[in-house]
């Protein structure tokens, strides 16, 4: 058996893979939180619940015949859910923005956090009423089942898929914000929404769509996560706190910072599991505390505020 720093290589690569997967989810979720914070100045605590919602929509779609028996509804699988569920969550996000979020834009940022904590409680509580705290299984799609033995580790296809898709989505989102016209409107609106509006751009509509997009991203992440983690009402609960820490580490509102620190912290967390398992749950928070001491604006802090 090959040992690296006294650890079997299988354990090391296995945890690295787990870390990379977690990192992919952290990056996708932090990306949404960073966009919403950067563009709308809203601390979207309900992001974790929206991620859970995405996973549940995928699960509902798969189980339509059981949920509505007798209607002859078909079961809708992973690939359609991957498109449909984020759209549903996008719609829910638009509604939440319209009903609640836009009422706190002009208030201190703290109120956005309090408001979204409340929304989190409502969403999670509602799902707990029906599903308790137990998890619902969601199978890996046929096409991505199995994996390949690389000798030093077993590489499941689905996990490779998650990492690749996460990278692609992160890059596409970054590109949209930093390199396209719509992104330019968004960046400008972050700096001076009143002026951008006076140029003829419907800023309130744009903010609504941006919130919907960030939330839709959470829904998408939820579908991606459904086959790996169980679909349960509490699945976003601890995750959102980690994601907030990741966003703080990356520099609040920094898109690139959120993506990089998402992957980076996932891997660090995986490595910690190998070398010091007891600290693996807290390592991200400890890193956050250290980063705040040495680089108060985060790793890639664009806005110091």
């Amino acid at each position: 058996m090959i040992l690296i720093f006294g650890v079997p290589i299988q354990a090391l690569t296995g945890q690295l893979m787990v870390g990379l997967i977690n990192g992919a989810f952290y990056a996708l979720l932090s990306l949404g939180v960073a966009i919403i914070f950067g563009m709308l100045r809203i601390a979207n605590f309900v992001h974790g619940a929206q991620y859970m919602l995405g996973a549940f929509v995928a699960w509902f779609l798969l189980n339509l015949p059981n949920i509505f028996p007798g209607l002859g509804l078909p079961t809708i699988g992973y690939w359609v859910a991957l498109v449909l569920a984020p759209l549903v969550v996008f719609g829910v996000g638009i509604l939440i923005e319209f009903l609640f979020i836009r009422r706190v834009y002009d208030l201190d940022h703290a109120y956005s956090l309090l408001l979204t904590i409340g929304l989190t409680m409502v969403l999670e509580g509602a799902f707990r009423l029906k599903y308790g705290s137990s998890g619902q299984p969601y199978e890996i799609p046929e096409l991505l089942k199995g994996g390949r033995n690389l000798g030093f580790m077993f590489l499941p296809y689905y996990r490779v898929w998650v990492v690749v898709v996460s990278l692609v989505v992160c890059f596409a989102t970054w590109f949209m914000i930093e390199r396209t016209k719509f992104g330019a409107y968004l960046r400008a609106a972050t700096e001076d929404p009143i002026l951008v509006r006076a140029f003829g751009i419907n800023v309130p509509l744009m903010l609504m769509l941006t919130y919907g997009f960030g939330v839709g991203l959470a829904g998408f992440t939820g579908v991606m996560a459904a086959p790996i983690y169980q679909v349960s009402p509490g699945m976003g609960q601890n995750l959102i706190i980690i994601v907030f820490a990741v966003v703080v580490i990356g520099g609040m509102g920094s898109i690139l910072g959120a993506i990089i620190s998402g992957f980076f912290l996932g891997i660090i967390e995986g490595l910690t599991k190998v070398f010091w398992p007891e600290a693996s749950n807290t390592v991200i928070f400890v890193i956050m505390a250290i980063i705040l001491l040495v680089r108060p604006n985060g790793l890639i802090g664009r806005v110091a505020k």
């Binding site: 960046r187 400008a188 140029f199």
Partner: peptide, 27 residues
């Protein structure tokens, strides 16, 4: 609304110039 007024063909150049730091000159 301000965006509707702009669409009627009025343009405004603010006192502080309102140049966006996160955008290039071309943007």
């Amino acid at each position: 609304a301000s965006n509707a007024i702009a669409r009627k063909g009025i343009a405004f150049c603010p006192e502080n110039r309102g140049i966006f730091s996160s955008l290039t000159v071309a943007e």
